[in-house]
Design a protein around this nucleic acid. Structure first.
Lengths: 191, 191
DNA sequence: CAAGGTACTGACTTACTAGTCAGTAATCAA
DNA sequence: TTGATTACTGACTAGTAAGTCAGTACCTTG
């Protein structure tokens, strides 16, 4: 079955975003799923293989969003992205970028490349959405869309990290400020 | 001697910012210093004790900055802070906030509190500096100084994380954008 | 019905981890 | 001079990590 495989990936994703890649073990996965460690190794021979699969799943989710939301106004696309992060903030989970980039130096090559791909893909989406929104007159900002996208991603990523220690209202305060700066017609409470 | 103790703290700080708290061991410290693991345990019985000492050292550095730079204009204080992060970006090291908040859930109480203190102390400094700079007419921004400080810290923190995977020019692009938004009279090249 | 693949289990290895503790050499204070 | 304190060493333990591999139950397919 592909069921076990998907369950492993889902649980690994959660563990990475809760504790970090280097702070969970195969037992943290096998025990809740009621299987043996060797069953996890059957699907993912090494931990790096599992990490790659988690990142691949994220890449597919981003691709899915871009496919499904591509027709929407740029700021509406941004709203969907912010909504995903908002849900994470409520669950006290950080994002994969915020979790995997600090551990980047402990990874080896196929995984490093995957993490890079993931960041670039998110950046590409946000760049496109912001550029479109500006053309549509629905958001306003100075400078290149890519540079602005970096700052938006930065705020999303950091707000999850800082919410852990400063309280979860931090997410809303930071994002509302970002949305105001961009002249967005909506706020976090509208999500 | 306090020498060994300080060397251990300095090396631990570097290891945390290079690989993460959960990805270095006592051997990574004892070997380069030419001492035994048990010598490290003599100074810091547990790894959490070592983590606390690293954070304490950071708290002292921040306190030192605030003491020494308190008389400068707010934007000049910000310049000094950005300069510290700029140096980190060149060394491909991230900051302690960016390194320790993802691992926050794996820590226990005395260390968690210390990490929180550290984030609050940095936030307090940046809030004060931004507020002062706005009063002095040297920076301009909308909203509360604390919320703006959160975004500035967010950009500093994330730029180090993202520089790792997107290339180190990412730091300059992000920060120059932030400085332009704030109407600062200086840019990264002026540091 | 036989052969082969899929999805495991059970038992294991190797390597490392944090952490302990008795002993010791050197310094310092009464 | 003695006794305590500081800063270690050396030898160890117990636990956990990732990873291996032979065996097996259960389909599926020719």
């Amino acid at each position: 079955m592909a069921e076990t495989r998907e369950q492993i990936i889902g649980l690994a994703d959660e563990l990475i975003r809760e504790r970090g890649f280097n702070a969970f073990s195969y037992s943290d996965i096998s025990e809740p799923l009621g299987i043996r460690n060797s069953a996890v190794h059957y699907h993912f021979p090494t931990k790096a293989d599992l990490g790659e699969a988690v990142v691949d799943a994220e890449l597919e989710r981003v691709a899915g969003f871009r496919r499904e939301l591509g027709g929407l106004p740029g700021d509406e696309q941004l709203k969907q992205l912010v909504s995903v992060f908002y849900k994470s903030s409520k669950l006290r989970l950080i994002c994969l970028m915020g979790s995997l980039t600090p551990d980047y130096n402990t990874f080896e090559e196929p995984l490093r490349g995957k993490v890079g791909e993931m960041c670039k893909e998110v950046l590409s989406w946000v760049t496109e959405a912001l550029g479109k929104a500006r053309e549509e007159g629905r958001l306003r900002f100075e400078g290149e869309a890519r540079d602005r996208a970096l700052l938006v991603i930065s705020s999303l990523l950091s707000s999850l990290l800082l919410s852990r220690v400063l309280g979860k209202e931090t997410f809303q305060r930071m994002l509302d400020q970002v949305l105001q700066d961009l002249g967005a017609a909506w706020r976090i409470k509208d999500i």
